[in-house]
Amino acid sequence: MAAPILTLAPEGLYCPAGDFHIDPMRPVPRALITHGHADHAGAGHGAVMATPETLAIMALRYGEGFARSQQIAGLGETVQVGGASVSFHPAGHVLGSAQIAVTQGSEKIVVSGDYKRAADPTCLPFELVACDIFITEATFGLPIFHHPAAAAEVAKLLESVAMFPERTHLIGAYSLGKAQRLAALIRQAGWDRPLYIHGAMDKLMGFYAAQGVALGEVIKVADTGRAKLPGEIVLCPPSSVGDAWSRRFADPVACFASGWMRTRARARQRGVELPLIVSDHADWAELTATIRETGCREVWVTHGEADALVHWAGTQGIGAMPLHMLGYGDEDEAVDQTVQPA
């Protein structure tokens, strides 16, 4: 049997033939990055290859010198890296997110990174890449997870805003991806008042807007003086909803936009009054459909609820292996890196 295309090293997935890591959790000489979330895109690597948007997001977060050298990956272009050929394909997760296909001889592995199949006005849709081995996440890898149409969740939000015009709707949404998607969806639903944001989101909001995503008028809460903003919609990092920061608003309705809002216990544990099931990850139906559609003979599960997905793959005659990669998580549950301690 030929040497494997990818192996599991302490830093993360490693390609011996090309001598590079994919989404490594520690600094390495050469890294290929799927998307800009902090658990996948760290600073301090030697050379970094990623889509232009992901490189720009890393520069925004870590400064221009986040790596010694940067290489732009063009979507769909095949590039030779050492003994492996590599191509990037849209993953539909956040702006700039990509799956990375690695081919060696006749064997192709696709590292999906985080992905979703649902429509998202802020990024390119997921592109299916046929492969032999598909490496998937399983953040929502249980059959209870079904993400309803995001537009319906936004409609629920606007209904609540109409019902409680004296209160501020404070929405916890991750600063990269979720916040912009929600803003774009709120605009699509016809909300034309300004959207208010926590200062920690300012840079990324500006970046998305510069990339042509229609976010409308966005105002930093800090720029409104002491306004209590009744009847308005405020976006902030999830951790800020229950923070002292939230006290300035008019009897805020605590909302949280996340796939986790599917279960009541999870929502109530966080003190959420209005759960919005909006996720940038694949739900169970998307995960299983994607695995089937890639035609892979083997699926590796990086992180999340791997047990159920591995069991399911077995019932479908697909080889499955959990990788138990501890460094990856779901951004909604992570401490938001963009929020600086006060």
Binding site: P143, I144, R264, A265, H311, W312, T315
Partner: peptide
């Protein structure tokens, strides 16, 4: 599938 039900029930708790 009973395995999937079991894992789901463990997670949801109700």
């Amino acid at each position: 599938d009973p395995v999937l039900f079991g894992l789901s029930y463990d997670y949801v708790g109700d």
